[in-house]
């Protein structure tokens, strides 16, 4: 191996097609990651408990327990970054996967190089999210502490995934200013201009259910019509 970009970083791939699993494992190992494979949702849950990975890659079409369910179960016990693999970009699968708790998605057939780039962006995100060098921000009852990686809603701590936290920190970096989907995709997900705006929309929705007293009429994370989102000071 000539590249060791991801030494020690452990990826769990959940894919039922034997040959795809092998080929993706080969290619990811070539990129320098440690890879564990699982052929079913059930075995993925076991593998996750035995040897917790840094990133999980889940194919949506699994026999038995499907990818969405795996995603939901994982989310119940962990905020590990999850990438969904879907057949197409324009199906409801993408939104359903994101709503089940995935952080990002890839469509088949993808280039493992591209997947590696996404994984790197994700890991950078979770590290940044913990470190941060931002001041503490308080809007209304909501208090965001980037350094501690903590969000308080009044007296209670709000539990966010790494991506949700990074998203909220981005918005909180300039309260009152509007962030377009493109800017958020670039800063939170590391995408260029042509990233999928639904990533932002679904994550905003998820974020609202956690930080808003009433997610249907948001007080903090508000939509700027046609432009993007902002944190209402």
């Amino acid at each position: 191996m000539r590249q060791h970009r991801g030494v020690g970083t452990h990826i769990l791939t959940v894919e039922d097609d034997e040959r795809i699993r092998q080929a993706v494992k080969l290619a990811l190992e070539e990129e320098g990651w440690d890879v564990t494979e699982a052929g079913t949702g059930e075995s993925a849950m076991d593998a996750f408990t035995d040897n917790p990975p840094d990133v999980v890659l889940i194919d949506i079409n699994l026999p038995g327990m499907d990818g969405f369910e795996v995603c939901r179960q994982l989310r119940r016990e962990s905020d590990v970054p999850i990438i969904m693999v879907t057949a197409r970009a324009d199906t409801h699968d993408v939104v359903a996967g994101l709503e089940a708790g995935a952080d990002d998605y890839m469509t088949k057939p993808f280039a493992p190089k591209e997947l590696s780039a996404r994984i790197r962006a994700m890991l950078r995100r979770s590290r940044n999210a913990e470190q941060g060098n931002m001041q503490r921000v308080k809007v209304g009852e909501l208090e965001i502490s980037p350094e501690e990686g903590m969000v308080m809603q009044g007296e209670t701590e709000v539990h966010l995934t790494k991506t949700e936290f990074k998203l909220l920190c981005e918005l909180a970096s300039q309260p009152g200013k509007v962030f377009s989907r493109e800017v958020l995709l670039e800063r939170v997900w590391g995408y260029d201009y042509f990233g999928d705006g639904r990533l932002v929309d679904v994550h905003i929705r998820r974020l609202r259910t956690k930080v808003e007293p009433d997610a249907a009429s948001p007080r903090y994370v508000v939509t700027a019509r046609g432009l993007g989102y902002k944190l209402q000071p």
Partner: peptide, 25 residues
Amino acid sequence: ASDVSHELRSPLMTLAASVEVLEHR
């Protein structure tokens, strides 16, 4: 269309990943 799509994508996925390994080497 979705069946065909799935049937075609699976081998293509294997091919794409394998070719990348080859390119790497």
